[in-house]
Design a protein around this nucleic acid. Structure first.
Length: 454
RNA sequence: GGCCCUAUCGUCUAACGGUUAGGACGAAGCCUUCUCAAGGCUUAAAUCAGAGUUCGAUUCUCUGUAGGGUCACCA
């Protein structure tokens, strides 16, 4: 059981900069962050770049950007490549105590050394407790004398992790179950260097739709920042990831970061693997968008608007605020605004729509005379709305009785088409308000002219 | 294959031996409606199988089956 009175909780997340940090990794970072914050502890971010060949500075910056975006602030930052001297000390001590030794090898692959440092495996059974899985026991015999360093300057993962966790006073190791089988060998090293065993919590593995572990090849598993580029909200990302393998025990689904901090507990972490479900992400993101302030929504709206729209002659930034609600209800992430613009579903607010006369007819109607009559009447009625009162409600009121008598489709469809030039759009009253009285009447005039035309 | 872990609607999950097995996403239908959204209501949808233990198993035990993880001079 997790004691609730830890003197000082220290957690860490330790990514390695060998590729663009992908979404799957967010969850472990989040859980470590949440647990530390919840208990007033320390959250460490550690760059595991001992693999000098594969590690790249740009990838380190990449995950740093990811956490900046997500707002997962760390209390301390370490880079393993800065700590070679420390690892060397431990290596030397281990060798001096005959707990590790220099071993002559026959290189099996290019790049392999002819001498490495191996751990002298006591070959015993290692039982350990896991906060989510319970008690587990491993026989470490099959591990053999595993390699812990290529040489004194090049220690390997299992070794550096243990040294660092020990030096940094890490109390809780929260990670995915893919690390369960790494645990016994890390425990062996802990015992050899005299380190205290941390509390382990191995959460569920994140799976793709095929129920296999998320790999870098999965189309789903995109570099984390692509979600930022697509206009997902950090809070939504965090919310979604948190619920993948953990639940609050209540029916609450939408959480802010600080709400997650309050609710998080190791006890409610999930054992079975969890499938990454993009549809749920969409929904959660939409919920978070709804909870944004008008100004925040508007800022995102503007930044995701296609440049083609912004350069339209009729483009006015002030109109954005009026369009905003109609756009918000149509999207789940802001990136969709780009496709909306591309589909022409935004441009009619700023530029005269073009369309064929035929499109103005409601369903099977083909009576040009009737159509003309209705457009003219519509124009008269809308024209009667006072300039200062040109709101959605007032336009609707001005038209409603007539539309009901004539048939709503017969009146409203041509109106809406005249205003938008689109098969699909917000309702005509809404459009009229956004366009303003002058533009609205102007577009009805154009529809009348087009109807005359043929 | 060895070792380890897991098993409730399609998906995320709730139910610390007694519930009509609950919620959410998604799906379908209906309402609203000129269209598209949004919104509201409703429905379908699950305890892997077989033995035990028990008055009673989703829940405990065992076996089977299935799935996953891991077996580097990567992390």
């Amino acid at each position: 059981m997790t004691s609730t009175k830890h003197a000082a909780v220290v957690t860490r997340f330790a990514p390695s900069p060998t590729g663009k940090f992908h979404v799957g990794g967010i969850r472990s970072a989040l859980y470590n962050y949440l647990f530390a914050r919840k208990h007033g502890g320390t959250y460490i971010l550690r760059c595991e770049d001992t693999d000098r060949v594969r590690s790249k500075k740009e990838y380190e910056e990449y995950f740093l950007d990811v956490f900046r975006w997500l707002g997962l602030e760390h209390d301390a930052y370490y880079r393993q490549s800065d700590r070679t001297a420390l690892y060397r000390d431990y290596l030397e001590k281990l060798i001096a105590a005959d707990k590790a030794y220099l071993s002559k090898e026959e290189p099996k692959e290019v790049g392999q050394r002819s001498e490495v440092i191996r751990f002298r495996n006591p070959n015993k059974k290692v039982p350990f407790h896991d906060e989510v899985l319970g008690d587990i026991i491993f026989d470490t015999e099959e591990l053999g004398d595993f390699v812990i360093a290529r040489d004194f300057e090049n220690p390997l993962y299992h070794f550096t992790v243990v040294v660092d966790d020990h030096e940094m006073g890490v109390t809780h190791v929260i990670r995915g179950q893919e690390h369960v089988s790494n645990t016994p060998r890390q425990i062996l090293i802990q015992e050899a260097i005299g380190a205290k065993r941390p509390i382990y919590a191995h959460g569920s593995v994140i799976l793709n739709e095929a129920r296999a572990k998320l790999s870098k090849r999965d189309p789903l598993v995109r570099p984390a920042l692509e979600y930022q580029e697509d206009g997902y909200l950090p809070a939504a990302m965090l919310n979604f990831m948190a619920l993948l393998g953990w639940n609050p025990g209540t029916e609450q689904e939408i959480f802010t970061l600080s709400e997650l901090v309050d609710s998080f507990s190791l006890e409610r972490m999930q054992k079975p693997g969890a499938v990454f479900n993009p549809e749920k992400l969409e929904w959660i993101n939409k919920e978070h968008i709804k909870r944004l302030s008008r100004d925040e929504q508007a800022a995102h709206f503007e930044s995701f608007l296609a440049p083609e729209i912004k350069t339209l002659p009729g483009y006015e930034k002030t109109k954005l605020l009026k369009i905003l609600p109609t756009v918000i209800e149509r999207i789940s992430h802001f990136g969709e605004i780009t496709s909306l613009s591309a589909a022409g579903e935004l441009s009619y607010y700023f530029a005269e729509p073009t369309y064929e006369k035929e499109r103005l007819f409601w369903k099977d109607e083909r009576d040009s005379t009737k159509l003309l009559e209705r457009l003219v009447k519509t124009k008269t009625l809308i024209g009667g709305v006072k300039d200062g009162d040109f709101t959605r409600e007032n336009v609707k009121n001005a038209l409603w009785e007539y539309a009901n008598g004539e048939g709503r489709g017969q009146v409203l469809w041509p109106l809406r088409y005249a205003l938008s030039g689109m098969e699909k759009s917000p309702d005509p009253f809404q459009l009229a308000e956004i366009l303003g009285k002058d533009k609205t009447l102007e577009r009805i005039d154009r529809a009348i002219a087009i109807t005359h035309g043929t």
